Simulated scan of single mutants.
Amino acid sequence: MAALPRAVTQAAATVTPATAARALFVARRDGRRVPSALVQPADCLEAYAIQDATLAAIGTVGGWKVGARAGQTPTCAPLPAEGLLPDGAFLTGPAWRLRGIEVEVGFQLGVDLPPRAAPYTRDDVAFAVHAVLPVIEVVETRLADWLGAGPQAQLADLLSHGALVLGQRQPFEPAWFDLANVETVLRFGPQIVAHTVGGHPSPDAGALLEWLANHCAARGAGLKAGQVITSGSCTGLLFASQGTKVQVEIGGLAALSVSF
């Protein structure tokens, strides 16, 4: 593998969470890409520090994404409120290059879960959730070498979050914490590109939200009423072409769409 230019390696050696976050913020704002060598956190703690600094530059936190592969510790990222979009949103411009699509079940909080000494329990989280809704996460990256950047850089880049399209809310029932039998249909135009039943890699959404509540409390932020928490893809990740209308159906919830 060819060596990185001296200027890049020197800059990478002096990057701090604040400067990495600034680079990611500018890239997000301008629809550009950051050399992956400039966003290489030493560990998860530094990646989360970059997330916090990035959101401080972007603005209000409108929600969170959390997910895990089977048997692995979850990871999460705050979601900018400006990127929570209504059903039927039309996305165009230089920011939308990957157009990655993930079909997910979202949970909206009705009360705050602030930092506290006692750990939050599953019952605490279930009490706090006010509504369930279908969502489409649009996956994008600010990293020039997205696949080669590594998991810590992707974690710092808000876990490759681009936007979250929100469907119709309905009252939450605890049974929604079990995603093992959720049926989803994903269409690109008229074509069905994914049809899954129980396709989520970590289907206990209650465990994911419990972990998130305690993780955010430890970060000193907590979770706030009105925030939407998205719980990982039920269909895997697929990529839409420019000009595609993406349509989603999740059993028991209203249909929704996004277009490029």
Rank of each mutant, 00 (worst) to 15 (best):
R69T: 11
V193D: 07
R99I: 06
A117Q: 12
G106C: 11
R99G: 02
V103K: 00
P80N: 07
T184N: 03
D178K: 10
T121E: 06
P134T: 09
G110S: 11
A81L: 12
C76W: 08
W64R: 06
T121H: 09
N181F: 04
D112P: 06
L147N: 09
E82D: 12
P119V: 00
L133I: 15
P78M: 00
D124P: 00
G150D: 10
T73P: 01
I101Y: 01
A131K: 11
L164F: 05
Y120V: 01
Q191N: 12
R142D: 01
P78W: 03
G67H: 01
Q154H: 08
I192P: 05
A144S: 11
V125F: 01
L147K: 10
G93D: 02
W96V: 07
V165S: 04
A153M: 10
V182Q: 03
F177N: 04
H161S: 08
H130W: 03
W176Q: 09
A81Q: 09
A163S: 10
T184F: 09
A175Y: 12
Q152K: 12
S160C: 13
V66P: 00
E140M: 03
P86L: 13
W176P: 02
A126W: 00
S160E: 10
L79Y: 02
G148Q: 11
V103G: 00
E140S: 13
F188P: 07
H195P: 05
A118F: 06
E104N: 08
R122A: 12
P80H: 00
L166A: 09
Q72C: 13
E183G: 13
D124K: 01
T196L: 10
G110N: 06
A77R: 02
E173D: 15
P74F: 09
Q72A: 13
A194S: 14
Q170V: 15
E173S: 15
P80V: 03
P115W: 13
E183Y: 12
T75C: 05
V193N: 02
V138Y: 04
T184S: 13
E173G: 15
R187H: 15
A118N: 07
N181D: 14
A95G: 05
P78K: 00
V197K: 13
L186W: 06
T73C: 11
